[in-house]
Design a protein around this nucleic acid. Structure first.
Lengths: 184, 184
DNA sequence: TTATTTTGTCCACTATAGAAGACGATTGAC
DNA sequence: GTCAATCGTCTTCTATAGTGGACAAAATAA
């Protein structure tokens, strides 16, 4: 709250720019701010004035207050367990919890899979750089393409190239496992 | 959205400071920003950097994004009827609606006064530069110090120096009138 | 390969943000 | 009335925000 917001603005600025696939030159043209200055801001070598912040947020089509709010969120270091978004499939009881703070480079998902439940994932859903599966408790049958992996408690699997996958809990108790991934 | 936020920030900054009863020197001490610079920012003669915005919002105990959001609100030109804050006295049924957009220099209040109701105002409540009362419908008896004004529909009264005042509706129907004022 | 475009950073320069203190105006105490 | 404290603005000076252009590295094209 009383910390210098330069760092948070820097990372947020870069995220917004790259999310749009813009180069420094493109954002410079859109915003009217020189690309040298944008480069400095993104590297925390300059503290932008309200005027340039207004121009940059305008180029993104965001109100300045929203851009600042996003910057503040990105700064959060701790994702409290109580605040982590949880999704539950009402049919199967499958639940997935997003553990990592928002906008992290590395994402951790904690999954609970009820007994007997079978969750298929098409190959198209895996647009990640890297992905691993680590079993916390119980036994997990994981089918990756044509290969079937039997994973026991503590086992960790590194996924290969994109393939149709299926998660299955063959036991009689819910199992818990972690999915760790880095996005493209 | 793509406008320079300097003006909006300036007025918001002054509002926050004066709401806390702080002088420039006090805010300077709280925030670590020189009072000369705060003065410039409030008069739109400088565009504050992210660093000083962070310090100032910190002094107010506000996240930067909230300060920006408040600044943007102050910039709104239209106060929609549905969004205007209305206050009703549960005892008498007296209602007062703040018509003007927030933080305007000139404020308009629309008042509805039920029949027979008498609303006194002590002289101390009038810390305004100028104030006028304009009757929209009905008849209003308005006592200003020792003078009693009988105001009919369409009449408009310019108030003199601060004095104890009383609003009274002598009729059998609710009356509506407008209070227009400029704050000190 | 070599040439060309595009990337982000660095350099030199100008504009201005920001600090510290002086100043006149106002207020209140006596 | 005088004096002192406090207000916001103005002045001077330094630090740095901001620009335009040069630059090397990487990607793309031929």
């Amino acid at each position: 709250m009383e910390k210098d917001p330069v760092q948070a603005i820097a990372t947020r600025l870069k995220i917004e720019r790259e999310a749009r696939g813009w180069s420094l030159a493109e954002l410079a043209e859109q915003s009217g701010v020189s690309k040298a200055m944008i480069s400095k801001i993104e590297r925390c070598e300059a503290s932008p004035t309200a005027t340039v912040l207004g121009r940059l947020s305008g180029a993104f089509g965001l109100p300045l207050s929203v851009l600042m709010a996003l910057a503040e969120r990105a700064q959060e270091q701790v994702a409290l367990a109580a605040e982590q978004p949880v999704w539950t499939d009402p049919e199967t009881g499958y639940t997935r919890r997003a553990v990592s703070p928002p906008n992290s480079l590395l994402e951790l998902l904690e999954v609970s899979l009820p007994p007997g439940v079978r969750v298929p994932y098409p190959a198209a859903a895996f647009a990640f750089q890297h992905q691993q599966i680590w079993v916390l408790s119980g036994r997990l049958d994981f089918q990756e393409g044509r290969t079937l992996h039997h994973l026991a408690e503590g086992d960790c699997l590194l996924l290969g190239p994109p393939a149709d996958c299926v998660f299955f809990n063959p036991g009689s108790e819910p199992i818990r496992y972690v999915v760790a991934l880095t996005r493209r």
